[in-house]
Simulated scan of single mutants.
Amino acid sequence: GGSGVVVLPCGAGKTLVGAAAMAEAKATTLILVTNTVAGRQWKRELIARTSLTEEEIGEYSGERKEIRPVTIATYQVLTSRKKGTFTHLDLFGARDWGLVVYDEVHLLPAPIFRFTADLQARRRLGLTATLVREDGREGDVFSLIGPKRYDAPWKDIESQGWIAPAECTEVRVTLTDAERMSYATAEAEERYRMAATARTKLPVVKALVDRHPDDQVLVIGGYIDQLHQLGEYLDAPIVQGSTTNKERERLFDAFRSGEVRTLVISKVGNFSIDLPEAAVAIQVSGTFGSRQEEAQRLGRVLRPKADGRQAHFYTVVSRDTIDTEYAAHRQRFLAEQGYAYTIVDADDVLGPKLPTVD
């Protein structure tokens, strides 16, 4: 029973791969996930797609401590300490786990690396959409879990109809003279934030949202003030770090059902939270353009549309600023993944300007 890492684009059925491994292993399974929302998503999917019942799946999180034949535990609860000692590590020894599944293995916290190294598990399965770790420790993942078993290039999965072909468009906005001046005189570390959060982007984002009147649209930003600005400008609800799980689930459900059409989300949206499908994503600002985040973020949108419609990924960038440089990283990454990438001017999105009357 080999162990290994499976690299799949987001949305390409990681839970199904996990379920298949579980069926194969026919053994008690520990599934490690990034947060409770992701855990509940796993539970929902497993109940929907396998013969497992609600009673057979336990949640081991800050809120509940259930150990069942299939137990879903959060990385957080396992790394929490009391008086310097890790309190929940006995979970690993609680059963002779036949299979351990690591969801979003590239986010696996370092202490978990160390504990799981001596786990009793016979099989380990690491699932990830990307094997770029921010701390450069990809090698650890392989030494811990086993070799990379399967790496699905996005294009191949797409051509098999698993992921909607996405059209990526970078929209370049010209800053106003005042914004340019503030940018020019800003300290180096402030520059990205200023370029990324320029108010000039707002009408462009609105025009992009209006371009897709029949689609669910996610608007993604990296800065709290900007999220509020976007929420107000688009008259759309916001999901950010401080949003409670309950409220987040409520908004996601409203978005899924089409009751909410546009949702503004902060980068919290990246980490395996069961983001609802959207046909359109508009990124207004990120943080330093890490490839891992790009993969995550794009994968959230690239779900097959039932009617075969195209998915769209827009990124709105301030011209002649560091924002454009970050966009170049993104462009390179997307090009490597085989996506078409187009750069357009904001005016093309905003449409012809009406002539001014003296």
Rank of each mutant, 00 (worst) to 15 (best):
L334W: 15
G98V: 09
F271R: 14
E134L: 12
L144E: 02
D118R: 11
Y341V: 13
A196R: 02
A188R: 15
V357L: 12
E158D: 01
W42D: 04
A195F: 06
A38M: 15
F142R: 14
E138T: 15
F313I: 15
L144T: 04
Y102I: 09
Q292D: 00
D90R: 13
P153T: 12
L208R: 05
Q240F: 13
L263K: 09
Q240W: 12
I47S: 05
T29K: 04
D253L: 14
G4N: 02
D348H: 10
T74K: 00
F92T: 08
R309D: 10
I273R: 13
T130F: 03
K65H: 14
E54N: 11
F115A: 02
I112T: 03
E63W: 12
L52P: 00
L108E: 00
D358V: 13
V219I: 15
L275T: 15
E170D: 00
A21E: 11
G146R: 03
T28V: 07
T71C: 03
A19Q: 07
F333C: 08
A166D: 00
I112M: 07
R256H: 03
E63K: 12
P153C: 08
L354F: 03
N245W: 06
L125A: 02
A19Y: 08
G13S: 06
R332T: 14
A121L: 02
V173I: 05
L125S: 00
Q296K: 01
L251H: 07
G222Q: 03
V204P: 01
A184Q: 11
L52N: 00
Y314F: 14
A19P: 07
V204K: 00
E66N: 01
F142D: 01
Y326L: 12
I57E: 05
K26A: 15
D156Y: 14
